[in-house]
Design a protein around this nucleic acid. Structure first.
Lengths: 253, 253
DNA sequence: TGTATGAAGCTGTATAGACAAGCTACCGTC
DNA sequence: GACGGTAGCTTGTCTATACAGCTTCATACA
């Protein structure tokens, strides 16, 4: 009874294509149920035993899927208790760049955001080349300023593939950050960051209420959904009071 | 024959304490042999079969150890061929902050470094608190400027625990970067980064040949060796032409 | 000489079964 | 009611075995 993977393709089909390893399909199933909202945050997942029954995979295979998702920060497991959906931002993992709104709220401050622009444009060539080869035509374009207790702290400019997130243009981003929306609307799989220090341009300086030329932290991010780039964005953090922190164990010796 | 872990404690003892899972001890064994230089860079490791014979663990356990180290960027595996020690800097993984010298050479430029200071000091309280609780007395202190094709690009200030790296003060850092030396002399296990943008101070501006107040990328890093902090350093990248890049798969759905 | 063919060795995945260890809730006793 | 033990569920680890897929190399053949 080696590869009776049919059971997984039964009640809940995971991926039509079948060259993908079983444990990866179990991961995909779990990620989809989390993305769906079928298993909301902090919800307890079915036990390994249940997932074995649900998917038809062996417990070791289910366990591997759960372990890797736990390692990636998607899940949180407690021996003797169960498996839970981790807090959403733990998912970013790599660089602990929290959603700016969450980070501000975590500090006990009030987050506000002002939408400067939300339209659909013929993006400049520089942006289009960031989107990579196949590219996308006329992406959404949004510009926001996020503030903490009223003082602006982050300038966010973003381009979004309209085919992956067709409703992007109709969102109210003063209530919910674009990133927050995208992470739920689109299954984001890969991130690429480039961090640099820049002097505030006149536009940025005006938006963030900084003197022109003040040092700012710039974070350029490209986000994939599978093989396709879902969004390209540039975050500019105001002045010297913003930072990015990260910590990671490299080895467990 | 469930937990016959004695074999691993035999020929090559891994960890005297034994509450640690077997796969973790196999990982530790591999990491130590890499750190030792027993298995140098690009060297092909013993096959899974050999490691089974060597450690007494089952192949699944050895495989798990190898898989996790591969995921962490320590190893590089090719199906049908074997397992290799990955290029050292891939090991940082999290943020691809290459050793500045390597990065410069990779770009085909000439790396130079000038040692401004190398002594042993009563460090300022700010640094000592960064070292954490047990602290270390009179750490080594070094200040360097790295240059690319003659133009300075990075200012590096570093404090090093003298008990972990007693020979730090006798190294020639114009030939070999401190980081390069430390990663071989001390088994580094954990990194913490804080990234911020700052305006160049007079000292930094002078060292990097920048106008005062120019935006610089600052990277504060603490590096652990086990439970102990081995080194605390602050890297300041010159101007807008330096950046940090990273890319990572978050999920494999 | 050049090209198939196949064996050997390697990693990758999957399974079934077992035991260890942690938590919770229930049930009995005092 | 308070306390303690225990059964049952959960996750964590480990083993033994099997097969699949890939690479390399030697051998046989044209």
């Amino acid at each position: 009874m080696n590869t009776h993977q049919g059971a997984l393709a039964g009640a809940r089909d995971v991926l039509p294509g079948a060259a993908i390893p079983l444990y990866a399909r179990v991961k995909a199933l779990i990620l989809r149920n989390i993305g769906d909202g079928t298993w909301p945050r902090d919800r307890r997942l079915p036990s390994e035993h249940d997932l074995v029954a649900l998917t038809g995979a062996s417990r070791m295979t289910v366990h591997r899927a759960l372990r890797e998702l736990t390692h990636a920060g998607v899940l949180h497991r407690v021996q003797g208790v169960g498996t839970f959906v981790a807090a959403p931002m733990a998912r970013s993992g790599l660089i602990e760049i929290e959603d700016i709104a969450q980070e501000i709220r975590r500090r006990g401050a009030v987050h506000g955001s002002r939408v400067l622009l939300l339209d659909r444009v013929e993006a400049p060539g520089e942006v289009m080349s960031a989107f990579g080869e196949p590219g996308c035509r006329r992406p959404f374009h949004s510009v926001l300023v996020h503030s903490e207790d009223g003082t602006p702290v982050q300038h966010e400019e973003r381009y979004v593939d309209p085919e992956l997130a067709p409703d992007y243009g109709r969102q109210d981003f003063s209530a919910r950050t674009p990133f927050d929306y995208l992470i739920e609307a689109v299954p984001l799989t890969e991130f690429e960051h480039v961090i640099s220090a820049v002097a505030a341009s006149p536009a940025i300086a005006a938006a963030l209420d900084l003197p022109q030329g003040a040092p700012c932290l710039r974070l350029d991010r490209r986000t994939w959904s599978g093989a396709r780039i879902a969004t390209v964005n540039r975050l500019t953090y105001a002045g010297e009071r913003c930072r990015l922190a990260t910590r990671r164990v490299v080895s467990t010796s």
